[in-house]
């Protein structure tokens, strides 16, 4: 049952990715003006254009071009970046860890803010505290990450400058890292001086990304908790003399978390989508920042590679969430 579900999901995932690759390909190729004009700096000669056309296979038909590109991608060859003159896959893999670290830290912050607020809201049902949490959630939800980022820059970058407002790490530091996962590696190597510097750069962009998600977690989990708290076994625990907080943490939370999980998974992909502009805002050297540069430089192979990696990330997260849900939900496990 679960295996079958997994295989069907894997198939839809492949179709979605194929769809994404077609859409990107079509958008770039049917753009007014030929793609070579997009690639070359102004003032290029006709010979340059022809040479470049042959080099990138653009003298063939769109269908052939797509076939060549796709077969390359399937073998791990994403082509060569035009503006950076390097292997696209290498460039993307080099930047991806920075974006992943930022997204994971943001998710942790969102859970740390949203989780406790949900528990407090469920415990203080019908009081002014719950109403206050609802208003805060509403505000955090209506304001997008871009505006939170700007507000944070003013607050913690200018008014009370305790965090860095641009970059990923202070440029003067010597980095002993073997991977691009600077934050995780600095913790593993016990180089907490570097961890502190990295966090000081990462905190504001991560918080900006986290705030809308924190509101969603707090709202969904609270609703789910309230529902579970009327069930017999929770009432029984209360009768046994557990305090309300104990009842929530020990009994209600594990059953309330599951329904909230699916929606939080989808929202996490929105958070990752938000890294594109947030990285730009904080000059954080991740995949999103590189993507904007790629678009501005009209670097077609790089744009295609980055979009595909983002799409792969999104569908993988959805798959993981879906499978976790299926594995943890007894009704689906035995169904």
């Amino acid at each position: 049952m679960i295996l079958q579900r997994f295989l069907i999901r894997l198939l839809t995932m492949a179709i979605t990715l194929l769809g994404v690759s077609v859409v990107v390909f079509v958008i770039i190729r049917v753009a007014p003006g030929n793609p070579i004009a997009m690639m070359l700096p102004p003032g290029a000669t006709d010979a340059d254009i022809e040479r470049l056309k042959a080099l990138y296979g653009l003298d063939k038909s769109i269908l052939q071009q797509y076939g060549i590109w796709l077969s390359g991608v399937l073998q791990g060859d994403f082509g060569t970046s035009i503006s950076l003159r390097q292997d696209v896959l290498g460039l993307v893999l080099n930047r991806l860890p920075a974006t992943l670290e930022l997204s994971i830290v943001a998710l942790l912050i969102a859970l740390l803010i949203g989780g406790p607020l949900a528990v407090i809201g469920a415990r203080e049902q019908g009081t002014g505290i719950e109403a206050g949490i609802d208003v805060a959630n509403g505000a955090a939800l209506s304001i997008p990450d871009f505006l939170w980022g700007l507000a944070l820059i003013l607050l913690f970058g200018v008014l009370w400058p305790i965090f860095e407002i641009s970059g990923r790490v202070s440029p003067r530091l010597d980095l002993p890292f073997a991977t691009q996962f600077y934050l995780f590696e600095s913790i593993l190597r016990l180089r907490f001086d570097l961890t502190k510097d990295l966090i000081s750069h990462m905190f504001m962009p991560a918080l900006a990304l986290a705030l809308p998600l924190a509101a969603i977690i707090s709202q969904l989990l609270k609703l789910s908790l309230k529902e579970v708290m009327t069930l017999d076994y929770v009432v029984l625990a209360r009768v046994k003399g557990f305090s309300e907080t104990q009842v929530i943490l020990r009994e209600a939370l594990k059953n309330a978390a599951l329904p909230a999980l699916t929606l939080i998974g989808v929202q996490f992909t929105f958070l990752i989508g938000g890294t594109v502009i947030i990285e730009r805002l904080f000059s954080y050297e991740g995949l999103g920042n590189m993507a904007i540069d790629a678009v501005i430089n009209r670097d077609l192979p790089l744009i295609q590679g980055i979009v595909l990696v983002f799409a792969l990330l999104f569908v993988t997260i959805n798959l993981i969430v879906d499978m976790t849900y299926a594995l943890l939900n007894p009704r689906l496990r035995h169904g």
Partner: peptide, 9 residues
């Protein structure tokens, strides 16, 4: 397919 695109990008 549309949901697999980062909207800002």
């Amino acid at each position: 397919v549309w949901m697999a695109f980062p909207p800002v990008l």
